[in-house]
Simulated assay, not measured.
Amino acid sequence: MSAIKVIGIDLGKSVFHLIGHDYSGHEVCRHKLTRVKLIQFISLQESTTIAMEACCGAHWLARKCQEYGHKVKLIPAQYVKPYVKSHKNDFIDADAIAEAATRPKMRFVSPKSEQAQISTVIRKIRTGYIRERTSCMNRVGSILLEFGISFPRGHANMKKLFQWLADKEAIVPPQLILELRDLLDYYNQLNEKVAAQDQKLIELNKENELYALLQTIPGIGPMTASCCLSSVGDPKDFANGRNFAAWIGLVPFQYTTGGKPRLLGISKRGNKELRELFVHAARAVMWRDASAERYFGSWLIDLKCRKPFNVAVVALANKLARIAWSVMNARKAFEVKA
């Protein structure tokens, strides 16, 4: 059998399909393997390039492949699709992945560390608690509305629910009071769980100097810094800060044809969580004119006067993203030299 240049793996939950290409691009092997058999197969192969789509389970398998001395290339799924030929099945997908990995201008994703994945899991669980907490608050409001009581929104009012009812001298059935008490207890439990997740993120990243360094950027706090560290495997994946901001989706969507440039709204591509956090960071700065002028000078004040508030917020979020990339890239370069 010819030497294998690249192995394309189509990931699955229990079964994995892989195809190997030689240096001429011809198929030299194809296998359908279980997870255990796949690890055994990889461990017996000489060092080669292994390509996968950057999807569920890819980063764990990438770390396993690197342990056996292989070079791993993770490809965004949308960049693999053009190489799928004819009908779609698992072996055709694996073949397309292997072919896409050999393209000179293909873009790749750096495998994430175990700590980065754990940080992502903690934030996802935190987001789930926040959604449940919002549902709980809406549930209380809708229940009271059924009894002719318009309860105002907001955490401040929710925390003093029964005091608010007493001040309004609202007539509430005793059985309903018991139900509202259970909902309020559930709301308080969710608050505690959200706070616990926040503390876990701080403990997980407290030894990381870059985590503290990112928080020196105006508007960026622990959550945004943690998301930057876990979402960006290697800042060198981006040529510059502009590419990083484009990956987040903070640049206009471009539709240019016939030499006529046309810029639409922001593309909203890439990492939704990171984009949302940068927008919130920008909004926190924009709300305070003194802070905005101190950190960004007259540029931001003039922008607020010329453009709608939300447009200015997105422009500032774009600038914050570029600054964050510069900080991560400079720190990475310093660590390499050291």
Rank of each mutant, 00 (worst) to 15 (best):
Y186L: 13
L145A: 02
C227R: 11
F162V: 00
L201N: 02
L201D: 05
I220N: 00
S230T: 15
L184Q: 11
L145C: 02
R133H: 08
I202N: 10
P218V: 01
G219C: 02
N188W: 09
L210H: 11
E132S: 15
S150M: 12
K193A: 05
E207G: 07
I143G: 01
Q199S: 10
E203M: 06
A212H: 11
L210E: 05
M137Q: 15
K160P: 13
L210Y: 06
Q189I: 09
E146M: 02
L201W: 01
E203A: 10
D185H: 14
Q197N: 13
L201F: 03
R153L: 14
M223Q: 13
L201H: 01
G148M: 08
I217F: 09
D234P: 04
S142Q: 02
I149D: 05
D198W: 07
S142K: 04
S226Q: 11
P152L: 07
G233R: 07
A225I: 00
M158T: 02
E192L: 12
S226G: 11
R133D: 07
A195W: 03
A225P: 02
P152M: 08
M223F: 12
S231W: 05
E169K: 14
S142M: 06
S231Y: 01
M137N: 15
I149R: 02
L184P: 05
A166Q: 09
P152Q: 04
T224I: 00
A156W: 11
S150R: 08
C136N: 10
R133Y: 10
A170T: 14
G221D: 05
